Amino acid sequence: MGLFDGMSISGSGLTANRTWLDVIANNIANANTTRTPAGGPYRAEEVVFSPGSASFSSALGNATGSTLQGVQVSGIVSDPAPFKLVYDPSSPDAVNGYVQMPNVNIGTEMMNMISATRAYEANVTAFNAAKTMDTQSISIGK
């Protein structure tokens, strides 16, 4: 394990969590969007995480039994949940009086936002702890 591995792993978590928070914010902002450029209502998005990309040093670490990796966003996918139908015959998007509304669940998005915020805070704490340990280990060598 290298001197800056802990900070690198926490940094990858910070980047992934920032992307997750951006997607959540986009979902909440479009919770009432009934017409998109692609046509139809807005479809909620979800973030897919995967282990961080393997470099030569991490592959070497895996060969020696160490499995230290970060995390990365491997994709952002559309939520396959069905759209909600709301009766509003006055809407220009109404078909037979019903409007297809986005499949964004505000309660779920708020729970995801709390989870993403807590994960971000945990990565900041781990990053700061790794930074402190690295600083102390460098000062021991002096």
Rank of each mutant, 00 (worst) to 15 (best):
residue 123 N to C: 14
residue 142 K to N: 12
residue 75 G to F: 03
residue 55 S to M: 10
residue 99 V to R: 02
residue 72 Q to L: 01
residue 17 N to E: 07
residue 72 Q to F: 00
residue 126 A to S: 14
residue 112 N to A: 13
residue 71 V to H: 01
residue 27 N to P: 00
residue 56 F to K: 13
residue 87 Y to G: 05
residue 67 T to C: 01
residue 39 G to P: 05
residue 17 N to P: 00
residue 38 A to D: 15
residue 28 I to C: 06
residue 119 A to N: 14
residue 71 V to N: 12
residue 116 A to M: 09
residue 20 W to H: 11
residue 35 R to E: 13
residue 64 T to V: 06
residue 69 Q to P: 00
residue 53 S to C: 00
residue 139 S to P: 02
residue 125 T to D: 13
residue 77 V to P: 00
residue 52 G to C: 02
residue 104 V to A: 04
residue 45 E to I: 00
residue 42 Y to T: 08
residue 91 S to I: 05
residue 100 Q to S: 15
residue 140 I to Y: 09
residue 61 G to F: 01
residue 57 S to Y: 05
residue 104 V to I: 09
residue 131 K to H: 10
residue 126 A to I: 06
residue 122 A to P: 05
residue 69 Q to R: 10
residue 61 G to W: 01
residue 9 I to P: 07
residue 52 G to T: 04
residue 106 I to M: 14
residue 7 M to W: 14
residue 85 L to Q: 15
residue 84 K to I: 14
residue 56 F to Q: 15
residue 129 A to H: 10
residue 89 P to W: 14
residue 132 T to K: 14
residue 11 G to M: 14
residue 75 G to T: 03
residue 97 G to M: 08
residue 5 D to W: 07
residue 53 S to T: 10
residue 27 N to C: 00
residue 111 M to F: 04
residue 46 E to I: 09
residue 112 N to S: 14
residue 142 K to F: 02
residue 26 N to E: 11
residue 69 Q to S: 15
residue 87 Y to N: 07
residue 54 A to W: 04
residue 139 S to G: 05
residue 139 S to H: 08
residue 60 L to R: 12
residue 128 N to F: 10
residue 73 V to Y: 00
residue 106 I to Y: 09
residue 76 I to N: 02
residue 80 P to K: 01
residue 24 I to A: 01
residue 121 E to Q: 15
residue 27 N to K: 01
residue 130 A to M: 04
residue 84 K to C: 05
residue 56 F to C: 00
residue 7 M to R: 15
residue 80 P to C: 07
residue 95 V to T: 10
residue 81 A to G: 15
